[in-house]
Simulated scan of single mutants.
Amino acid sequence: MLKRIAVLFAVVGLSAVTAAPVEAHGRTPVDGTWEYFTEVLDVREVGCNTVLSLRESDEFAGDIVGTSNPDLGTSTVVLRCNGSTTFRGAIHFDEVTVDGRTGSMVLRAHGRLGAGETEWTGRWRIVRAWGGLEGLSGHGSWWGPGAGGPGLPGFLEYDGNVRINQHWRAADAPVSADL
C-alpha cells in the first residue's frame, strides 16, 4: 500500500512539474522581413494633404510567414502638408504560419515617414486570428526604407512579441499513461 501511495505522489509531482510550462502564457519574440507592392485605387485632396487609397500585396518572412490577400486588405497613405507621410492599413492573411501553427489573421499597422527622412517607422498589432491560430495576439514595431512609390517593391523589417494560446501548448504536451 505504501508503495502505491509513493508511486501516486511521484506521478502527481511529475505531472505538476511538466504541466507548468504547458499552461504558460508567455510572450514569444518574433522578427523578420515584410515586403510589399502597392496599387493606387484612389487619390483625393483634403486641404493641402493628398490621400491615397491603396491595394497592397504583402509577404511576411521570418517568425511570421505568409502572403496577404490583397482583395481584403485596405491601406491609406497621407502625404501631409508639412512634408511627412503617414500610413494606416489592415492586412488580411488567409493562410499564415506563426510558431509552427497555420491559420488566418488580420494585422493592423500604422507608421510615419518624417519630412526629409529616408526610413519609415511604425507599429503593428494582430487584431484577429482564427483557425489554427485561434487566440493568437501580438504587437510590435516595423521600420525600413519602404517603397519608392506605387508599383515598386517596398522592404521593411519587423519585430515584436506574440502571445501563444495556452491550448497550443497543451496540445503539444505528452500524454501520460494511466496507472
Rank of each mutant, 00 (worst) to 15 (best):
W168A: 08
T102D: 10
F155K: 03
D58G: 06
W142K: 09
L136I: 13
W143N: 02
S84D: 12
L107G: 01
A115R: 07
T97F: 15
S68N: 07
I164N: 00
L14K: 03
V40S: 11
G32I: 02
T50D: 06
E45G: 12
R88T: 12
T18N: 09
V175Y: 02
L107I: 10
V127T: 14
A177L: 12
L133D: 01
G83H: 14
S137F: 03
T50G: 09
D63E: 14
F155L: 07
F93N: 02
R163W: 08
F37I: 04
H92A: 13
D178N: 11
V12P: 10
F87E: 00
Q166V: 02
K3M: 03
A90P: 05
N165W: 04
V51G: 07
A20W: 03
F87S: 01
N82W: 04
G154C: 04
R108C: 12
H92K: 12
V65E: 14
W124A: 01
G26T: 10
A16H: 06
L52S: 10
L72C: 14
R123V: 01
D99C: 15
R108P: 04
A24H: 00
A147G: 07
D99N: 15
I64T: 07
T28P: 00
A90S: 15
G149C: 05
G73K: 04
C48F: 05
R108N: 09
N69P: 04
V127G: 05
Q166W: 15
